[in-house]
Structures are given as C-alpha cells and as structure tokens.
C-alpha cells in the first residue's frame, strides 16, 4: 500500500527545510529593518547579521539547485 515512512520523511524534510529558510530570511529582513533605523545604536552589527542570514538562505537555494541537477550528485 502506501509508504507511510516515506511520506513522513518527505513531510518532515519539507517542514524543516521551509521553516529554516523562511525563519532565517525573516530574521534577515527584520535585522535589516533594524539596521536602517536611526534610533538603534548597533546598526552595523544588525546589518552584518542580516547579510549573514541572507547568505545562509542563498546557500539553501544553492543546495536546492544541487538537488535539482542530477549531474552534481550521481
């Protein structure tokens, strides 16, 4: 019948991947918004952290491309 293990694996992988990427990107957006605020003193740190978040997201996207292209991993 239906392969429930495979289904649960897919569901878990989807959830983890999406939550991590969206969470990081949202954090990046938030930190970037903080970094352009005038009132907060540590804008430099916030901006660097925002860029770090975006970079991790970019790595996630590249990993997606890596998964899509079979030539890379088979």
């Amino acid at each position: 019948m239906i392969d429930w293990i495979a289904f649960l694996t897919v569901a878990a992988a989807t959830l983890i991947a999406a939550v991590v990427i969206v969470g990081l990107y949202a954090l990046g957006v938030r930190l970037y918004a903080v970094s352009v605020d005038d009132s907060v003193p540590s804008t430099r740190v916030a901006r660097a952290a925002a860029y770090a978040c975006f970079a991790v997201c970019a790595v996630g996207v590249l990993y997606g491309v890596y998964l899509i292209v079979p030539a890379f991993h088979s």
Partner: peptide
C-alpha cells in the same frame, strides 16, 4: 515567500526521498 519556499521544499523533498507529489 513562505508559500514558494514550502512549495520548493516539498517538491525537492518528494523527488529525492521517493514520494512523488
């Protein structure tokens, strides 16, 4: 963004962990 990331994650997971969606 949330919807597309979920879509991409689901498609990639399904095509690589063997449960076609």
């Amino acid at each position: 963004f949330a919807a597309e990331t979920s879509t991409a994650a689901a498609i990639l997971a399904s095509s690589h962990l063997g449960f076609a969606l």
